[in-house]
Amino acid sequence: MRRTSLAILAAAGVLFCGAASAGTKLTVHVRTYDVVGKTGAELIEAMDSLGPRHGHATRAIAETGYAVHWELDVKRDNGICRLRQADGTIDLTYTFPRRTSPSNSALSTRWERFMAGVRQHEHTHGRIAKQMMRATDTALSGLERPDNWFCTGLRWDARRRIDTIYAEYEAKQNAFDAREHRDGGHVEHLVNALMGKN
């Protein structure tokens, strides 16, 4: 599951420094919530009760949340507005379960395999989000156009490009989740393996 947000900030430039040179920054946070259980079924039940909220009535096993912010530095010179700098920041937060109860070696082995699969799933969401930032960075590079004193048109162009790429990559996130969560898919396999059904 993912939780996302997107913000675009605009800053007027005071100096002209040539073509836009966009860049992105990444911060990563990892959160955990504790689960206890003597069996795989009890651990699944604990995750269903304590995991990150997924809608109003259900919870997820784990979650990748990200907040995206773009700060646009725009300069007008001789009637041409140029995007001098586009600084993107993505804050990624992974939330995972943490088993705190002792267990036999068989359950411990199943738990480690389960968590390896859960981490792989969530880190794939993170990779897609980072790809989105790189694509946006490329799309904004060199953006310029004749415009008014406030560079209104250029700002709208930048916003449209950001929104378009954001929507494209959210569709990729949703398609990945649909594959992983389908009947007989990767997530079902992980849950069944933890419960000893495979």
Rank of each mutant, 00 (worst) to 15 (best):
T138K: 10
A86I: 00
L50P: 00
S49K: 13
E188R: 05
Y33N: 04
C17E: 15
G196M: 13
Q131C: 02
A10K: 10
S21F: 01
H123K: 13
K172G: 02
M195E: 14
Y33G: 02
T4L: 12
T164Y: 15
R182L: 07
G23E: 14
G40L: 08
P97S: 05
F96L: 11
L26C: 01
S141H: 11
R161I: 06
R160P: 02
W156N: 09
A7S: 08
T124Q: 14
M195W: 09
Y94F: 14
E45D: 06
T95H: 02
I44N: 01
G196E: 12
E188L: 07
K197H: 08
A22V: 00
R127F: 05
R145K: 12
M133S: 02
Y166G: 02
I90A: 03
E45Q: 12
G79S: 11
T32P: 02
R155T: 04
Q120P: 03
R82A: 06
A46G: 04
K130R: 14
W70K: 01
I162A: 01
S108T: 09
V28A: 04
R59I: 10
L15C: 05
G117Q: 10
T32A: 06
D77P: 03
L43C: 02
N148K: 09
T152P: 01
G18H: 05
P97F: 07
N192T: 10
E71M: 10
D137E: 15
V191E: 06
H29M: 10
R3D: 13
G13S: 14
R82P: 01
L140Q: 00
G37C: 11
L190P: 00
E168A: 09
T152W: 10
G55V: 12
A60K: 00
Q173M: 12
M115A: 02
E45N: 02
T24P: 01
H121D: 04
W70F: 11
P52F: 02
G142A: 08
T27F: 03
A86H: 00
T100V: 15
G126P: 01
A175G: 08
A7F: 09
R119D: 09
E63A: 03
W149P: 04
W149A: 10
I165P: 00
T4A: 05
T95E: 09
T24K: 04
R53D: 11
E45H: 05
V68P: 00
I61Q: 00
H121W: 08
R53Q: 12
G196A: 06
E144S: 10
R113E: 14
A11W: 12
E144W: 10
N148S: 07
Y166N: 11
T24F: 07
A193K: 10
A135S: 10
V35A: 05
W149C: 06
D48R: 11
R160A: 07
A139H: 03
A178S: 10
A129C: 06
Q120E: 15
R160L: 13
A86K: 00
A67K: 09
D48M: 12
D77T: 12
H181F: 15
F176H: 05
H186A: 06
M47G: 00
R53Y: 06
R127M: 11
T4E: 14
H54D: 12
K75S: 06
R2V: 07
N104W: 11
A11C: 08
K172L: 14
F96C: 03
R110H: 07
